[in-house]
């Protein structure tokens, strides 16, 4: 299976903690210390109470909530035949957009257990949980 390209994120400076954790292979989610809400995607302030968010590590496991096999990839993915794009529901609740890698697109099902794998540029991707 060919390696999926790993585009370089812009890395908003206010989210340096997120990207530093990702480089260590740790999945983090923004959490509001005031209202205890988990917030995805990461940002500096809570969209509910405007308090400063903190990053908390999460398990990096979850299940596929929805997925598609994009057979007309564009931009950084122009040269690959297909990209599996999914929403993964993390064990802690948030539904995060991602790529599924290291598995045959035909094997993907909603509900499939998955675990996080970070790309060389720190992108949060997932693969089948049973697949060590």
């Amino acid at each position: 299976m060919t390696e999926l390209p790993s585009p370089e994120p812009r890395r908003d400076p206010s989210l340096s903690g997120y990207w530093a954790a990702a480089a260590e292979g740790i999945v983090t989610v923004s959490r509001c210390p005031t209202c205890a809400e988990l917030v995805w995607y990461p940002r500096a302030r809570c969209p509910r109470c405007t308090g400063l968010l903190e990053l908390v590590p999460v398990s990096g496991t979850g299940t596929v909530y929805s997925f598609t096999v994009n057979r007309r990839p564009a931009g950084a993915y122009k040269e690959v035949d297909a990209v599996v794009i999914a929403y993964v529901e993390l064990a802690e609740g948030p539904r995060v957009m991602t790529n599924l890698v290291g598995l045959d697109p035909g094997e993907v099902r909603i509900g499939l257990p998955v675990r996080a794998v970070h790309s060389p540029t720190g992108l949060l991707r997932f693969t089948a949980a049973g697949d060590e």
């Binding site: 812009r10 890395r11 931009g75 950084a76 990209v83 995060v96 957009m97 790529n99 992108l123």
Partner: peptide, 14 residues
């Protein structure tokens, strides 16, 4: 500076 670009568009979303 699309705020979700690093968490959505970057995955090849069309």
């Amino acid at each position: 500076d699309v705020p979700h670009a690093d968490f959505e568009d970057i995955y090849g979303l069309t």
